[in-house]
Amino acid sequence: MDPVQSIQNSMMKPAAGKMSARPGFEARQAFAGWLNQAVQDVNDKQIASTAATEKMARGENIDLHDVMIASQKASVALQTTVEVRNKAIEAYQEIMRMQV
């Protein structure tokens, strides 16, 4: 499932059961789960790219365009992750500069 869809689905569902003793606990858990899934997805793409490259280097039957597509998917996923991280750090730094 797409990480964006999974977070949208989790936001649409009402909280089941009692409220947690700590406010926002469910939201933190949902965000942590989404973040872990997104990082795992990037890792899976990197592993698939490496495997395809190794198959091609060994001379196995794999098309060059499949290797390049896997490589580009991994590259774009990693670049996106780095940009999201940079934006999160910028937002944190901006919050820290705010006067209370």
Rank of each mutant, 00 (worst) to 15 (best):
A30G: 06
M19K: 06
G33M: 12
Q46D: 04
T50N: 02
D41C: 08
G24F: 00
D44N: 15
G59H: 07
E54I: 01
I47V: 09
G59N: 09
A15F: 05
K55D: 06
E60N: 03
K13S: 11
F31C: 14
N43W: 10
D63Y: 12
G24V: 00
L35S: 11
T53M: 01
P14N: 08
N61A: 15
I62V: 10
M68R: 09
G17Q: 06
A52C: 01
M19V: 05
V42A: 09
A30I: 09
R58I: 00
D66E: 03
A32L: 10
A32D: 07
N36A: 15
N36I: 12
S20H: 06
A32T: 09
N43L: 15
I47G: 00
M19I: 04
G17E: 09
S20K: 01
A48D: 10
P14A: 05
M12S: 14
A16K: 04
A51L: 04
M19H: 06
A70D: 15
A16P: 02
R28Q: 11
W34P: 06
T50R: 04
E26K: 07
A57G: 02
A15K: 10
N61F: 06
D44R: 13
H65V: 12
I69K: 14
K45A: 13
H65L: 08
F31S: 13
M19F: 08
